[in-house]
Write a protein that binds this DNA or RNA. Structure first.
Lengths: 210, 210
DNA sequence: CAAGAAAAACATGTATACAATAAAACAAAA
DNA sequence: TTTTGTTTTATTGTATACATGTTTTTCTTG
């Protein structure tokens, strides 16, 4: 698998995405050593982008670095995912709370648009586009919470459980229910009812978990 | 300010600590460009450790990287700190909850020891050692929660508000109160009373905030 | 044959050289 | 004077060479 310099993204970013995906897909056994020179050769780039990508993965806790020894993959297990849902339920609830208080007009417009498109694709049963809009909906709320730290943590967590969320949305019944829940959250934010937005969001996350 | 190769830590780690501290101390104006070559010269190392340190800071959201342009410092403002306390109150509450359920003997022994030392230094009014033990107490609970993600997020947040916590512990009245609260949390964990541990921890964090 | 020391192999940590890109300065034309 | 296109310069992105430390192998010695 060779990487192309023609791609607009930096090599580091491409390597990062590739490795991250491979780890989350479980393509590496836990504990495997990721050797820089080997990866560099395999991916057709120098060690530099590899090192930088590994640094990022380390900060996200997907690999562990042992000084002067190398990095080993940590992966992400089933109970890990359960725990992450619990954490997300707390944090996304808070994000919705703050969003209801702090959202600006532009973000409100964005949410309105996302919700409208969700309705459309729900009737069409288009799971692919719904997954995209789902991410967009949550991302906008993170942004509207106006808390860099929260936005940062949640964006990272969101990606980690992406696969789980995808599979949830592929169940037609869940699709409709999910859109309804998004509607309710949207209305609570529009009404600046922070407490209600929080509770609805918490319930929503726990439903996705199931 | 020159760095020493004799230090056991890697240059990257030293540079990271230095830059992080400078940013948190507010030594750089928000928006300042951190130019790799300039920093490299100032700190007496090559660009490589600088780059790696900046990558880490970017992942912690203390600087923003603009591709092909450079990184600008973000710093951390007063309202940011308030928000971080709110987030910590949620997450540390959950950590205490899980710790009460999942703690092992070794970690329990560690907590027992920390609490005993806290008592001693409280009577001696030794703020420096109390700050250290405070960190240790919370870190042990993160570890006992047995959730990598949570441990990871909280360790990072903990450092960000370290200054605020230090100043809180320098108030003698607060010192005694804080030790009492630690005691109560410790007992709840020892009794494996998850709900109570959570509530006590939440209250504790909010008290520190004030 | 076993144990330990020396050395080779190998990996990461760091420095530096080169390439690509974006901003700034400048010149020319309308 | 303003605008547009070109050149220069500064800075990041990437590759590579070298230094340092760790593991494994090999060889020596009892």
């Amino acid at each position: 698998m060779k990487f192309d310099v023609g791609d607009k993204q930096s090599l580091t970013a491409q390597v990062y995405k590739q490795l991250r995906n491979d780890i989350l897909e479980g393509r590496y056994e836990t504990g495997t050593f990721l050797v820089e020179t080997k990866l560099a050769e395999e991916l057709g780039v120098s060690r530099t982008p590899i090192r930088e990508a590994l640094k990022q993965l380390e900060l996200e806790d997907l690999v562990i670095s042992i000084p002067n020894r190398g990095v080993t993959v940590q992966g992400i297990s089933k109970p890990d995912i359960d725990d992450i849902f619990t954490i997300r339920h707390l944090l996304e609830g808070q994000a919705a709370y703050w969003a209801a208080q702090r959202i600006n007009q532009e973000q409100m417009d964005q949410l309105t648009e996302t919700i409208a498109l969700m309705d459309m694709y729900t009737t069409k049963n288009d799971a692919g586009n719904l997954a995209r809009l789902d991410s967009q909906f949550h991302d906008t709320i993170f942004a509207a919470s106006n808390c860099r730290t929260l936005k940062h943590i949640l964006t990272s967590l969101h990606q980690n459980v992406q696969r789980a969320r995808r599979s949830s949305l592929s169940i037609p019944e869940r699709t409709h229910k999910s859109t309804e829940e998004h509607h309710a959250i949207f209305e609570a934010i529009q009404a600046h009812d922070a407490q209600r937005a929080k509770e609805l969001m918490e319930a929503h996350i726990m439903n996705v978990k199931k």
